[in-house]
Design a protein around this nucleic acid. Structure first.
Lengths: 141, 141
DNA sequence: TTGTGTGCAAACACTTTGCAATTAG
DNA sequence: CTAATTGCAAAGTGTTTGCACACAA
């Protein structure tokens, strides 16, 4: 099922903007999670009339229909992730790049949390921060 | 060492506002983590001239000298925690209350992350979200 | 006295919203 | 045709900043 079919099946119209935004998101590296601004700048050359508002509105729809997850990773801007499986992330405190962090057993953590809390837990956010290899290299001039 | 001594020892002046803000923060329940707004409203009756800006500026100083930790827990506003030991939190998605979440072994998670990543990891944020017992009760009218 | 701190209002960064014009179906 | 979508600009949020005045030391 491609993006056009998914949109239609959920009652949304298929527009060039939505296709382009979806492609731009997919075009990013698998474990890389762009912000609205980043997508906008990626799209601008090919779609000069594209607006930031449309990126935001489209992402809201994509989230609603389960195509993306909106990540809040502590740099005050949303990052978008088209891998909607639960996993944790790491953000570079220098360049704000956000990547996947593998190897953390979220299910185990969730089980412990469920057992230890009186809340009805609905979600968990595990984000690391640090210096990415590229920035670490730069800094050691 | 009380708050006045700590401030002085770090080269900051001791003002009624700083004392009041510190007391208000301490006055909150141990595992409750207010926002700047909440502190401001708590303080307003006793300190009518108190400004939000002063709360923010003071919290910045408190963080700098290790008196509070600033939590970003996914509701787009900072919550302040005077327990500066690393621990995880849970936020109620209905009332935005933030409380401590005990029983999660952060050290173990950190060790796994350190081993599995090429980043120089400097921090981790583990936040759960769910419905607190009070809100759950309300909702089931 | 003198430099730090306060309080106000304006500036900020990111996101959302109102609305007229456009377009998909 | 007509309801949904776009793009702009304006509004909105939480936070920060510039600056005149107040005040701790």
């Amino acid at each position: 099922m491609d993006i056009a079919q998914i949109l239609r099946s959920q009652g949304f119209k298929v527009t060039p903007q939505r296709i382009a935004i979806y492609d731009a998101l997919r075009g990013h590296h698998h474990h890389d999670h762009p912000t609205a601004e980043m997508l906008y700048h990626t799209l601008r050359p090919e779609h000069p009339s594209m607006s930031l508002a449309t990126v935001y509105k489209t992402m809201e729809i994509f989230e609603k229909i389960g195509l993306v997850k909106i990540l809040e990773v502590g740099d005050e801007r949303a990052h978008y992730d088209w891998d909607t499986e639960a996993h944790s992330h790491i953000r570079c405190v220098r360049c704000n790049k956000v990547e996947d962090m593998m190897g953390i057993d979220l299910q185990a953590i969730r089980t412990i949390a469920d057992q230890g809390s009186e809340y009805q837990i609905t979600g968990q956010h595990i984000t690391f921060e640090g210096v990415c290899p590229e920035c670490a290299k730069k800094e050691s001039h």
